[in-house]
Amino acid sequence: MPAIKSLEELKRLKEEALKKREAMRTSGRVQITVAMGTTGIAAGARETMKAILEVIEQENLSDVIVRQTGNIGLDSWEPIVEVVVGDEPKVTYGKVSAERAKRIMKEHVMGGKVVSEYVIPS
């Protein structure tokens, strides 16, 4: 049985993260928001969130901030994910399953190209 994670280990990770942060100070930030109201959760928003966090971990993406928010009033499009890359306008994606979330992470967040087929038409 592995030992429970200690704060010592966290300290070491923090030092490493600080160094990395210094190195990439110039790169743009990405802000991702997952709608986590009752309808969103029932439609699978937690799995969507987990998929996003998984990609961040696997692809080692620093500078991505993930937040969650309540219901945003577009129930039939849940789970809903908003992505803002740097100064670009906000992109709102609908029916974002875990699979779709992974694609959005790879193509939009990492590749810079909006996945237009998942964007909620305004």
Binding site: L10, I56, E57
Partner: peptide, 22 residues
């Protein structure tokens, strides 16, 4: 301890996830 470093930093994310799972 993190003192402003985001929780979405990949190694921190992995740390918290493992801590909870374990």
């Amino acid at each position: 301890e993190l003192d402003g470093i985001p929780l979405t930093e990949p190694s921190i994310l992995a740390f918290i996830k493992e801590m909870l799972r374990e």
